[in-house]
Simulated assay, not measured.
Amino acid sequence: MTKRCPICAAPAVRDHAPFCSRGCASRDLLRWLEEGYRLPGAPADPEMIDAAGAEGLDRRRDTD
């Protein structure tokens, strides 16, 4: 059974697996970067994100 490219369904190529070409691999990356792939769920609370980010910065300072 031949693996298929998840973007265009052409046969996958080992050098670009699981894609058929660099072009399809790039299109997939752009979808990730532009937030084209999303998981269903409630929207994130911006205040919680800011608080988590600040805590992460504090931890990094402690380890330096």
Rank of each mutant, 00 (worst) to 15 (best):
C24M: 01
R27I: 05
C24H: 00
C20D: 02
L33S: 09
Y37G: 02
I7F: 06
K3H: 12
G36W: 10
R31H: 08
H16P: 01
V13N: 08
C5L: 04
L30H: 13
G36N: 06
W32C: 10
C5Q: 00
A9E: 13
P18I: 02
S21L: 10
P6Q: 01
R14K: 10
E34H: 12
L30P: 01
L39Y: 08
R31L: 13
K3Y: 11
P11M: 04
P6R: 03
R22C: 02
I7T: 11
R38G: 05
C20W: 06
I7S: 03
A17K: 08
P11N: 08
C24R: 00
D28T: 04
A12F: 08
D15Q: 13
L30K: 14
V13S: 11
R22I: 07
T2Y: 11
L39S: 06
D15L: 13
E35W: 11
L33M: 11
A25V: 02
L33N: 11
D28G: 03
R14A: 13
G23S: 13
R14Q: 05
G36V: 08
V13L: 13
L30A: 13
I7D: 04
C5I: 05
W32P: 03
F19H: 07
R31E: 11
L30F: 08
T2R: 15
L30S: 12
Y37M: 03
A9T: 12
T2K: 15
R22N: 10
R38F: 05
E35T: 13
R31K: 14
T2P: 15
K3D: 11
P6I: 05
F19K: 01
R27T: 10
A10F: 06
H16Y: 15
L30M: 14
Y37R: 09
S26A: 14
R31M: 12
D28Y: 15
P11W: 03
T2F: 12
L29H: 10
R14Y: 02
C20M: 03
E35Q: 15
R22M: 12
P11I: 04
C24P: 00
V13Q: 14
A12G: 05
R14D: 03
S26I: 04
C8M: 11
A25N: 04
A25S: 12
W32A: 09
L30I: 07
I7V: 15
E35M: 14
E35K: 15
C8W: 07
L39N: 09
C20H: 02
D28S: 13
R38I: 05
P6H: 02
D15W: 05
F19T: 00
A25F: 07
G23T: 11
E35N: 15
R14E: 11
R38P: 00
L33T: 07
P18H: 03
C20P: 01
L33W: 05
P6F: 03
V13D: 10
K3F: 11
P11K: 10
L30R: 15
P6L: 03
A10P: 01
V13T: 12
P11S: 09
R38K: 13
L39H: 06
R38T: 10
L29C: 07
H16Q: 10
I7G: 00
R27W: 05
Y37N: 07
I7Q: 01
S26L: 08
G23H: 08
G23V: 09
D15E: 15
L33P: 01
A12L: 09
L33D: 01
K3I: 06
